[in-house]
Design a protein around this nucleic acid. Sequence first.
DNA 1: GCTTGACACATAGATAAACTATGCATAGAC
DNA 2: GTCTATGCATAGTTTATCTATGTGTCAAGC
Lengths: 105, 105
Amino acid sequence: MAASELLPGTLDMLILDTLQRGSLHGYGIARQIQRRSEEALRVEEGSLYPALQRILLNGWVTAEWKLSETKRRARYYRLTAAGRKQLGIEVSAYERMVAAIARVL
Amino acid sequence: MAASELLPGTLDMLILDTLQRGSLHGYGIARQIQRRSEEALRVEEGSLYPALQRILLNGWVTAEWKLSETKRRARYYRLTAAGRKQLGIEVSAYERMVAAIARVL
DNA sequence: GCTTGACACATAGATAAACTATGCATAGAC
DNA sequence: GTCTATGCATAGTTTATCTATGTGTCAAGC
């Protein structure tokens, strides 16, 4: 663990949450998470793209190739109803954990 | 992830924190974490004992065989100075992560 | 024209953490 | 005697994240 850029087990939640604010491509998702966390969280590409595949296979998002604002081909992900539900599940499980850890420490 | 009993990456911290309150055997550590978290966290034996080996190898605790209160042989772990330092590192890294995630969500 | 840096995707392979399942053994209660 | 709680440990599996690598585009600066 130690030097991780992310709290393990929270990446899917962060991605789904980001997509809740509007559909976006992978690179943009990573940038947003980094920006909104004020540079504290950093999503490596080798974590991001496998996570997006996972999430896509689970039906939590749909994907569509488009052109980005910078005119490059990019895959835009959009949250599905199932994804929105999953986000709720993950957020509440996460908050339950954090509260439990706070009681312990 | 999903049905995990623990927030991944936090087990060592929870163990070290428990030992900060006094030396204790593995089984007792697991029970204390569960109790202090009000049953929200559950440490599986297959996670606990490998974690204790890890922590021992890192020099964060020392181990000693004794008899438990129930008269059974039990391995008591005691936090070292290095372990106390490591606990501080892990807690602050954890809190930094939780704060960052809170900004994102 | 060439290079550099930001943008954009993806996968292979390594590492590590946590889980399931299993085994051993003792004490106390019933 | 058998069940439950106490106690330790490892083997094997699964899963998440990371490092490293590869492809390719676009814009800016030289």
